[in-house]
Amino acid sequence: MRALLVEDSRAQRCVVRAMLKELGFEVVEATNGHDALRALEQSERPDVAVVDWNMPEMDGLEFIRELRRRRQFDSVRVVMATSETETSQIECALSAGADEYVMKPYPKDALRDKLVLLGVM
């Protein structure tokens, strides 16, 4: 199983990378949306992308919209993982094409539950 982790904070990346590895994923990392689109072109297609919202250059929302425009990535499940907690923001992420949403901070079990819901575990 492969995961693409898109997150600008190095500390946060480190934590989530460790969770994904413990859950049995190979992890490719990117620090913003542009970076993530590049990573998608260059590495094998991931089963899931875990995407932060607020990032420089291209934010998570825009990245998800870009990803959903590329039909070859239809099978990639997307979890938006962010500290935004307004209902309207969650709705916005889902309508942009996120399949799930998890609010920071979250433990490994919460991430696992989301991945199970999406059928990637």
Binding site: T85, E86, T87, E100, Y101, M103, Y106, L117
Partner: peptide
């Protein structure tokens, strides 16, 4: 609380059936 709704609850249900 947040950590409880984070666990296992589909986000679509959260927005549809819960009020923050």
């Amino acid at each position: 609380n947040q950590s409880e709704v984070n666990r296992g609850l589909p986000a679509s249900y959260l927005v549809k059936y819960f009020q923050r």
